[in-house]
Design a protein around this nucleic acid. Sequence first.
DNA 1: TATGAATGAGGATTCATTCAT
DNA 2: AATGAATGAATCCTCATTCAT
Lengths: 202, 202, 202, 202
Amino acid sequence: MPKIVDKKQKRAEIATAAIKLFAQKGFEKTTIQEIATSAGIGKGTIYEYFKTKDDILKQASEEIFKQLEQALHNNFNSSANPSEQISALSMMVLSVGKEVEQIFIVYLELWLRNMRTHKYADFMNIFHVLLGEMREVLANIIESGKKTGAFRADADSRALAIYLLASFDGIFMHYLLDSSAFDLVEVAKAFINNFIKGLERT
Amino acid sequence: MPKIVDKKQKRAEIATAAIKLFAQKGFEKTTIQEIATSAGIGKGTIYEYFKTKDDILKQASEEIFKQLEQALHNNFNSSANPSEQISALSMMVLSVGKEVEQIFIVYLELWLRNMRTHKYADFMNIFHVLLGEMREVLANIIESGKKTGAFRADADSRALAIYLLASFDGIFMHYLLDSSAFDLVEVAKAFINNFIKGLERT
Amino acid sequence: MPKIVDKKQKRAEIATAAIKLFAQKGFEKTTIQEIATSAGIGKGTIYEYFKTKDDILKQASEEIFKQLEQALHNNFNSSANPSEQISALSMMVLSVGKEVEQIFIVYLELWLRNMRTHKYADFMNIFHVLLGEMREVLANIIESGKKTGAFRADADSRALAIYLLASFDGIFMHYLLDSSAFDLVEVAKAFINNFIKGLERT
Amino acid sequence: MPKIVDKKQKRAEIATAAIKLFAQKGFEKTTIQEIATSAGIGKGTIYEYFKTKDDILKQASEEIFKQLEQALHNNFNSSANPSEQISALSMMVLSVGKEVEQIFIVYLELWLRNMRTHKYADFMNIFHVLLGEMREVLANIIESGKKTGAFRADADSRALAIYLLASFDGIFMHYLLDSSAFDLVEVAKAFINNFIKGLERT
DNA sequence: TATGAATGAGGATTCATTCAT
DNA sequence: AATGAATGAATCCTCATTCAT
């Protein structure tokens, strides 16, 4: 009887090794040999777990979205008032910190790929749903603020939610290009604070 | 020196052809042959104008930043009050429209490349400067608003400028992935409006 | 030694599975995995019965010649006069029918392999002997016809035997390429009949 | 301006080099590198002339049929009486000699490939036509013999033509497997002579 | 100057074979 | 004995780059 292996686990392990490399060098520039070496296995073994190189990217992206989702669900507790909730949610998203940097870079590459094909390929769907959910959550918070009278009644909650979420990608992108240019948390705090101020009734 | 101009012009032409392809397929997946064909010249001729494939990307990125810069400088006239200036600047950046979509995709790929190397390679420097300038312009507008008393005195103008500019990339990125999900201008207007509201004294 | 028989039997079973695949896809294009799957066993198990992939081909060819031989010996009964014997032998060879088509294709591939190496490798020896025997049998029939005065005295029995046997491969080959082009038995009958006519004294 | 090359000629040259190797080692076992080396060019250059490895086989087979056709058309002159014509045609086919041995081996491999796919792929079509023509020519000769009263009126000219042509492949196949076993021309002469005797009226 | 023919380094993928269980 | 996980040698093919014309 052959060695018993948790195929799923091993797939995930390889994907993790791949993500690191994809982040460092990009998908195209990363070779199967490098992934194998990084995963501590033989080149051929990769093909026991993945059909093609693209398949690795697919698995890797699933890994990524799983992590993103987890990071979000773990950290967010919807206590407090709408203003605080927005602030908390924003900080949470942006403070995921170093461990997600790599993830974000691959995430950006995936984004790019999907931009080009102009359709949500496999994996991107997962994210599409996640993004939709987050927009909803955020819009609801704003709506609830409007209901309590804390926020302007004329605020377009969906539009604001969409843009605010998008802005997270933007600031992260700018931050990762040159992290010495500014302090991410500080800048974000100032901005989110201003965003909330814009919402609040006076 | 009758050929000098020609050479420069041809470089630009080739770069333009390249940008289109880079946007469609990505840098790695675009072949020299394709660029040559698209530019209507022979494969070997490319090397009369560019040292390497990377060199084409460099020229392409210069082309891109030239266009971005032009788009910005052309449209922006610093009339009116700070609030209106912010609004105008924002709309201008975001309303560049279809012709810049391709540019943006390549711009994103360049961003990704520089994220990975963790240093501003050649071409990126140009952008670094441009970004710095824009941050400065925006921060100054906010500062001037503070001076006139229109804006909160405690507003961190640099932080807000940094984040607002970054947010443009974010929303554009989200928009280009799925342009049917929302109306870019509408969403941006609502958000910028809120941003200004957050700044204004009450 | 209870396992000995099993082992032999299993070898034969695997070889049978292999022959089917070799006929369909050719030896090179058939993978060990496919043979294993087709035989209903694990890939590794193949190597309990065969040293290498070539070894399977060897066994398969033995299987093939065993079948060919059996088909011949079963059907041939040397009754009647020389003319009838030739006719019967010919028809027997050619009427083996559908079940041997697969066999013939692999047989042809084996032939090709041995043509290339310009030596009778292992398995081919068996056939070499079989071919020799058949030539002998056929030549003897002709000789006996000459002795009884039924056949021309100047007939070169060995040459005719060699060629006639070879012609069976030729017509089978043509038939298998496009079995709709002609009726094998009908064509063969006409030809063999003419062959015998050529032999008979007038 | 680049080197001017007769692409067609070079394709043929490479195909010729390939045929030699295909005959020696078989298509599957012949590597692109080997073909390139044998053709005295670089591995990559092959792909300037052929899309894939299969494409080389296709070109090679065209080369082969061109040669076969030429060999036949060059040598056959329809003089003399039907008996002599048959004799001449047969000898011609079989006496093509050494230079066609290689060709024949590849021809056999092509045959095998097409047997498997059960359809005439590209190249095989050419041969199909050639075979049809030859059957026609041969059948016509027999028919003309029947008309002059030299041959039996009841001879099935088409069947005999089909089989006789097929027999050429058979005897060649046997001869090439072990050319020391018999003298091809001698054996063929005896056989063809007998074939004609079978046809002739008595 | 312009070109495309030539090239080989490089990379994805396949698969026979080994071996630990 | 039976198995399939692991492996790397081997191979096809791509493509940036060079260079002769």
